[in-house]
């Protein structure tokens, strides 16, 4: 399952360092997402780092192991889940407060500058992190599998493996 000598992907050293680091990259991305309301960062920046963890696996070990870590179906469903959570937070704002994205979670003043504070912002951050992390990974996976070819006078995106002409 974890064969560092396989021909696919990059060299032995890059594969081993990827194996050492990928868990910590994912952890760091989660940290940036969860602390987005206290430190620089937030949903998008943390999502990019989460995506980087998967992209590093994808680059170093090839598409097979990359998609075994985060499959196409799981990525697209997490992507949709992120968008749905984000919209649901906005809709709940209408339902509970009358305004789109109204902050409906009150936090007491003594909780400021702690992890559990600032209302719905952390929930939005987590949703954006899910969305950005998985969809950036899918952007790389799709763009590496297709290329632009001219067929019948029109430019099309075709899968590289099927295009043997």
């Amino acid at each position: 399952m974890n064969d560092p000598h396989a021909k696919e992907g990059m060299s032995l050293i890059v594969k081993t360092v990827t194996r050492w680091l990928k868990g910590f990259l994912l952890l760091y991305g989660a940290y940036i997402v969860l602390y987005g309301h206290l430190t620089p960062g937030g949903g998008f920046a943390g999502g990019v780092i989460v995506a980087c963890a998967f992209i590093l696996v994808f680059l170093a070990c090839g598409a097979g192991i990359g998609h075994r870590t985060l499959g196409r179906l799981a990525a697209s469903e997490l992507d949709s889940a992120g968008a749905l959570i984000f919209t649901a937070v906005g809709a709940l704002g209408i339902a509970l407060g009358g305004v789109f994205f109204r902050n409906f979670i009150r936090t007491p003043p003594e909780a400021h500058f702690r992890l559990l504070s600032s209302g719905v912002i952390p929930v939005c951050n987590i949703a954006i992190g899910l969305k950005v992390g998985t969809s950036l990974f899918m952007v790389l996976a799709i763009l590496s599998a297709v290329h632009v070819a001219v067929k019948g006078g029109r430019r099309r995106m075709v899968r590289r493996r099927e295009d043997k002409s």
């Binding site: 194996r19 868990g23 952890l27 070990c61 075994r68 702690r114």
Partner: peptide
């Protein structure tokens, strides 16, 4: 700071569960 530590436990659980090829 229990909130921070339990968030850390969740994030570490995520990292250990998702990264299938081991460290």
């Amino acid at each position: 700071r229990l909130a921070d530590l339990s968030a850390g436990a969740l994030a570490a659980l995520l990292a250990a569960a998702v990264m299938r090829e081991f460290t």
